Amino acid sequence: MRYITYLSIGILFGIIMFKSEAASWFRIYEMFHFGSFHMYGLMGSAVVIGIIGVQIIKQKNIKTIDGEKMNLKPKDLSVRRYLFGGTIFGLGWALAGVCPGPMYVLAGAGYISILIVIVGALIGTFLYGLLKKKLPH
């Protein structure tokens, strides 16, 4: 039953991402050229909803679906970490025209060419796992 819940939430999220044009290359291109507020509004509202959600989880002491306590610890702040990671992420996003979440939305919508980007992202993730101990964190 739990997997049906996860699948249903994922499908709903994918539909919302596609219908809101968050997976649209044109909208992302438009955002990088400061041509429209659309994507900034989407991301800003996602951040606000995320902040509210985390605060509710902390205040109500909400547990996971397995009944375990959630550990929401703040990450270590590091300029180098966010500078390098953000640059790599941003370059990938600009080159592919899509960030990780919408990649799967586009695959589900039938855009087969996005599979090249997904394979590249998986290879990059694998390489990060191999090099993790040697990278500045």
Score class of each variant (00 low, 15 high):
I16P: 00
L91R: 09
T5K: 15
K19M: 07
G67R: 03
M103P: 01
I116T: 10
V117N: 07
R27C: 04
F89Y: 07
F84Q: 03
G90W: 09
C99Y: 07
R2L: 15
I56M: 06
D76T: 09
H33I: 01
H38D: 00
I16H: 05
I11R: 12
V48M: 10
L135I: 06
W93Y: 08
K134S: 12
S8N: 09
I51D: 07
F89I: 03
Y29F: 10
K132N: 09
E30L: 01
E68D: 08
A46Y: 06
V48W: 04
G120M: 15
L72P: 00
I52E: 10
S45G: 05
Y128S: 06
E21R: 11
L95M: 11
S113I: 08
L95K: 09
M17C: 12
L42D: 00
I116H: 09
G110P: 00
L115D: 06
S113G: 05
L91M: 10
I65S: 10
L91Q: 03
L130F: 12
S78D: 02
S8P: 01
K60I: 01
K132T: 03
G41P: 00
I51W: 12
F34Y: 13
S45D: 03
I15T: 06
F126V: 10
I118M: 08
K58F: 05
G129V: 07
G90Y: 13
S78E: 00
G92N: 08
A109R: 06
A46D: 02
L83W: 09
I4K: 14
E68W: 05
L7I: 15
I16Y: 08
G44R: 02
V79C: 03
S8C: 13
A107P: 01
A109T: 01
G10C: 10
I123V: 13
K69E: 15
I114K: 09
G44S: 01
T87F: 14
L106V: 04
A23F: 02
F26Y: 15
G129C: 12
S36A: 08
G90F: 14
A107Y: 05
L106E: 12
G86A: 02
L131W: 13
I114L: 03
K58D: 08
F126M: 15
L127C: 15
T5I: 15
I116S: 12
G124T: 07
A121K: 05
K73R: 15
N71F: 07
Q59Y: 10
I65Y: 08
D76E: 14
P100L: 07
I62D: 02
